[in-house]
């Protein structure tokens, strides 16, 4: 075996390892070419600027909520779905109650803006159970800042608030009732 061949083997292996160091994304399954590692990837990803959560929330609302509550959050007295636009439940000081409604669902009847909705066999299902913390925070921030709710100073719902409430009710099974919710403070 010529010595230069052994040298080529070592050199090509060494340069190959340098290549792996620069291009493997440190074996992170989330990193694809041309990104170098997850930090590089995060630097390239667009940071969530103001309004981004509203866009995402609107998309989630359009997929999951608008069928019953309507595109403009007006609800429907005939189907028993309460309005979200101008609702005192939505526009409460904090999201303590609405996170619970989304997570576990609600068995009515419920009084909203002076009208009675739901009751009997009609209930809101636990649509939030399949959503991430981020998705719940986005969609609730959206409904608190859409239509006539806009500009009324409703604070955005943070991921931390969603996490905290979910942690508290992790052992709760079944729907919430309005009476149960009214016993809770609007804001922790």
């Amino acid at each position: 075996m010529p010595i230069w061949l052994i040298a080529i083997f070592i050199l090509s292996g060494f340069s190959g390892l340098i290549y792996v160091g620069n291009h493997s994304g440190w074996f992170d399954a989330q990193v694809y070419e041309p990104f170098v590692d997850s930090q590089h990837l995060e630097a390239w990803a667009r940071p969530p600027g103001p309004g981004e959560e509203l866009k995402r929330g609107k998309a989630t609302f359009g997929t999951l909520c608008s069928t019953c509550h309507g595109d403009t959050g007006t609800g429907s007295a005939t189907t028993g779905c309460p309005p979200l636009d101008g609702s005192e439940w939505v526009m409460a000081a904090g999201p303590n109650r609405i996170i619970r409604i989304l997570q576990n669902g609600l068995a009515g009847p419920i009084e909203v803006k002076g009208g009675k909705y739901g009751g009997g066999a009609v209930a809101m299902t636990a649509v939030g159970a399949a959503l991430s913390d981020q998705q719940i925070s986005d969609v609730l921030t959206y409904v608190r800042n859409a239509w006539s709710n806009k500009g009324k100073g409703a604070a955005p719902v943070t991921i931390e608030q969603v996490k905290a409430v979910r942690e508290k009710i992790k052992d709760k099974s079944g729907y919430f009732t309005p009476d149960e919710l009214l016993k809770l403070p609007e804001k922790d």
Binding site: L5, I6, G13, H23, A29
Partner: peptide, 25 residues
């Protein structure tokens, strides 16, 4: 490289190709 799979897979594949150079020669 640039295949739509996690970056480490084509990177390790390239390492294999580099290591075979001496064998080819």
């Amino acid at each position: 490289a640039g295949a739509p799979v996690p970056a480490w897979i084509p990177a390790v594949s390239t390492l294999g190709a580099f290591l075979s150079i001496a064998g080819i020669l």
